[in-house]
Simulated scan of single mutants.
Amino acid sequence: MAGKRSGKNRSGRGPRKELERPTSTGVPSLPQGAGEQKATSKAFLLAITTGIVVAVASALVLAAGPEIVDSDAKKDQVRDTFRNDPELRYTVEPMDERLQLVLPAGFVLSDKQQRMIPSHELFASGELRAAGAATVDVLTLRVTLEGRRNQDIFVDSVAPVVVERQAPFSGTLFYAPSQGAGTVTKMMFNLDERQPRARIVENYEEGDGETARIFAGLTDGAKPGALFFRENTLTIKDAQEDALLIQSVATEQAVSFNIKIDYRIGGKKKALIIDDEGFPFRVSPLNCVTKGSGMGEAGAGSLGVAAYEDVWQLRDDFSGMERVADPQRFEAFRSC
């Protein structure tokens, strides 16, 4: 009779257990729900890490300042590093022939220099500037400013910086007043002021007063008005030029000065000093010993008298200059 099968297998061992099937990675699978918990933990850690990185990066940007955010500022940093280029480039051009000049007392021209006067060669040589010559009464300049940065440049002030004040020069005078209307300007320096600043140019009107009348007689009817930068703004962009036509007028003393331009770029205040090719600009009134009646209707008025060591005057036919016989009593209508 066949006996009953026991729970043992043929090998005599107990019942066979189902083995856990390996995963595709060879690692036993986790209990149900454990995978979701692990994924959630990873996402949580990733979110915290990302937040920390963003916070640190933001702090670094804020610490570095606005320049790191401003692309123009970053481009300018590169230009500063690889180019020897000023932020603000300038050129200066006299708007007259600079034939009306006066030398300080005591300067004696050499024979060679005197021979260069009639043909105007001496004025082009630069020797008079080196000797300290001043323009008589009014100096008119075109100052051209060019931006050399990606960021805008904001000009806040243009003003003469006085180097020296002296009595009117009384050495050698070269007298060749401007013929006809002068250049129309929009900015004027009144060098008689204690601290001169740029002023707008206004037209003279009867009743404006003695000072305005004197200025009008020297500038073809113009006078200094309100402060220029109180009513005007000046923004200079990259590779663009702005020309300033400036009249500098002195009626009391000889004044030596440079021109200072205050400007801002990227929130920083800076300054540029402009001179006359290594020398200060100089303006001197005539050395008047007798005042005339000045400007009147149709140019009428009595002549004033100025005194100098030597005087050279433009010939009537404008062909050159000739020496004046009595430099101690030189009649000069426009200034005296």
Score class of each variant (00 low, 15 high):
M1N: 08
G3K: 10
K4H: 04
G7N: 10
K8E: 09
G12V: 10
E20S: 11
T23Y: 02
T23A: 15
T25E: 12
G26M: 07
G26P: 15
G35H: 05
G35T: 04
A39K: 14
S41D: 12
A43S: 11
G51Q: 01
I52Y: 04
A55S: 14
V56R: 07
V61P: 00
L62C: 01
A63W: 05
G65Q: 01
V69W: 07
D72W: 03
V78T: 10
T81L: 15
R83D: 11
Y90L: 01
E97H: 03
L109I: 07
S110G: 15
R115K: 13
P118G: 05
H120A: 08
H120V: 05
L122N: 05
A124M: 06
A124V: 01
G126M: 06
G126Y: 09
E127P: 06
L128I: 05
V138S: 15
T140Q: 09
T140F: 04
T140K: 09
L141S: 07
T144P: 08
T144A: 10
E146N: 06
G147D: 09
R148Q: 14
N150L: 04
N150W: 10
V161S: 12
V162D: 09
E164H: 06
A167I: 03
A167M: 09
S170K: 12
G171M: 02
T172H: 13
T172L: 08
Y175E: 08
P177E: 11
S178C: 04
T185H: 05
M188D: 03
N190F: 00
D192M: 03
R194D: 09
P196G: 00
R199H: 07
I200C: 06
I200W: 00
E202C: 02
E202T: 01
N203Q: 12
Y204W: 12
Y204Q: 06
E205L: 01
E206K: 02
E210P: 02
T211H: 02
A216S: 12
G221Y: 01
A222I: 00
G225L: 00
F228L: 07
F228S: 01
R230E: 14
R230L: 10
N232Y: 03
L234H: 03
A239V: 07
L244V: 08
Q247P: 05
V249M: 10
E252Y: 05
A254F: 07
I261W: 04
G266Y: 03
G267Y: 03
K268L: 08
K269R: 06
D276P: 12
R282V: 07
R282G: 07
N287T: 05
V289W: 04
G294A: 09
A298Q: 09
G299V: 07
G304E: 12
G304A: 13
Y308G: 02
Y308F: 14
W312Y: 15
L314M: 15
V324M: 10
V324A: 13
A325S: 14
Q328V: 09
R329Q: 15
R334V: 09
R334M: 08
S335M: 05
C336L: 11
